[in-house]
């Protein structure tokens, strides 16, 4: 029995369209997602996240490589994988002529779920996504964020073992996003596995057990949020005001970035004391804060862009 919910090996995808040069969207992506895990794909626009999610969710055929869902070849036998997956497509919209309640219910019924179960799951999803007040309004009259919540509610109500969510919280307010996080965590507690993409790095940090950073159709780095942050050389950042002249010494503490007159140093907690003493000795103001995932992301993608 396979431990992985999803495994891709050297997955490649080249888009061919008439009149334009072919686009290599994926250039050998190998990813594993274990059961019950929540994994995020991060990457710049056009990195290949949606392409990967589409191939994994049997919406698109890869050019080469293998993709397995619960140990089953999802390229050659998509129909075997489909009962176990559900997907929130990027920029999907609900049926405009249905209400969110009808949309969720009909989709569950289409998946073969019985009437009673469909009804109760539909109500639960409406409550989780905070859609109660608009549940009986036509989707065409909903705001962008409400439509997106309807799409997420539709898919989480399936309680499928493997869920793909392409930018699920896009356009949602901070409350609604937290609602999505809670529901997704609840789903993994019940045993589902999640693979999502997002451009909100706070969200990625809260939600994911592991992250993959994709750049130019390849996996750049992978690991937990902490590991990614540690790869910067420290988990704290110290900003020294007016530290321009001290850069030489500051570099010995860790990576430095100059921002106007200030210099930010990434430093390991064990050397914080020493660094602060150094700042005090030179009568400079210093601010200490944690390194964010965003910084780790910017740094590692930035490095790869410079290497090109």
């Amino acid at each position: 029995m396979s431990e992985e919910a999803l495994r891709s090996v050297d997955l490649r995808k080249t888009y061919h369209s008439r009149g334009t040069p072919p686009v290599e969207a994926l250039r050998g992506v190998s990813i594993e997602v274990r059961r019950g895990e929540r994994v995020s794909l991060l990457g710049r626009n056009g990195a290949g996240k949606t392409t990967f999610l589409k191939i994994a969710s049997t919406l698109l055929r890869p050019t080469s490589g293998t993709i397995e869902i619960f140990g089953e070849d999802a390229d050659r036998h998509p129909e075997r994988a489909r009962p176990y997956i559900a997907v929130v497509p990027q920029e999907g919209k609900p049926f405009f002529h249905l209400t969110p309640r009808e949309q969720i219910y009909t989709y569950l019924r289409a998946r073969g779920i019985g009437r009673e179960t469909a009804k109760s799951r539909c109500e639960a999803a409406i409550a989780q996504m905070g859609l109660e007040s608009v549940a009986d309004r036509l989707s065409i009259t909903l705001s962008g964020g409400q439509r997106q919540r309807t799409m997420v509610a539709t898919v989480i109500a399936t309680e499928a073992p493997l869920l793909f969510l392409d930018e699920p919280s896009i356009g949602m307010d901070p409350f609604a996003r937290r609602g999505v996080w809670d529901s997704l965590k609840g789903l993994t507690r019940k045993g589902s596995t999640l693979l999502l993409t997002t451009h909100y790095l706070d969200e990625a940090e809260v939600l994911s057990d592991r992250l993959y950073i994709i750049e130019g159709g390849r996996v750049l780095t992978a690991g937990t949020a902490d590991e990614l942050k540690r790869s910067l050389g420290g988990t704290l950042k110290v900003t020294i005001a007016d530290g321009r002249g001290l850069e030489e010494t500051l570099r010995s503490f860790g990576e430095c970035v100059a921002d106007g007159g200030a210099v930010t140093v990434i430093v390991d907690p064990s050397r914080l004391r020493e660094l602060l003493d150094f700042a005090v000795a030179h009568e400079k103001a210093a601010t200490v804060g944690p390194v964010t995932l965003e910084e780790a992301f910017l740094r590692s993608v930035g490095r790869s862009i410079n290497d090109e």
Binding site: M1, S2, A5, R35, G36, F70, G71, E72, R80, P83, Y84, F95, H97, L98, E102, Y105, T106, Y107, R109, A110, R111, G112, I113, R115, T117, E159, A160, P161, L162, K190, G191, S192, T193
Partner: peptide, 28 residues
């Protein structure tokens, strides 16, 4: 196929009529 976590209560066949009856009827 290796069984996914919660295979019980997970239909392997979809259904057309219950969904599209609503989709079609509401449209009209």
């Amino acid at each position: 196929m290796a069984q996914p976590v919660r295979s019980a209560n997970l239909p392997t066949e979809g259904r057309s009529l219950p969904a599209f009856l609503i989709i079609g009827w509401r449209w009209i």
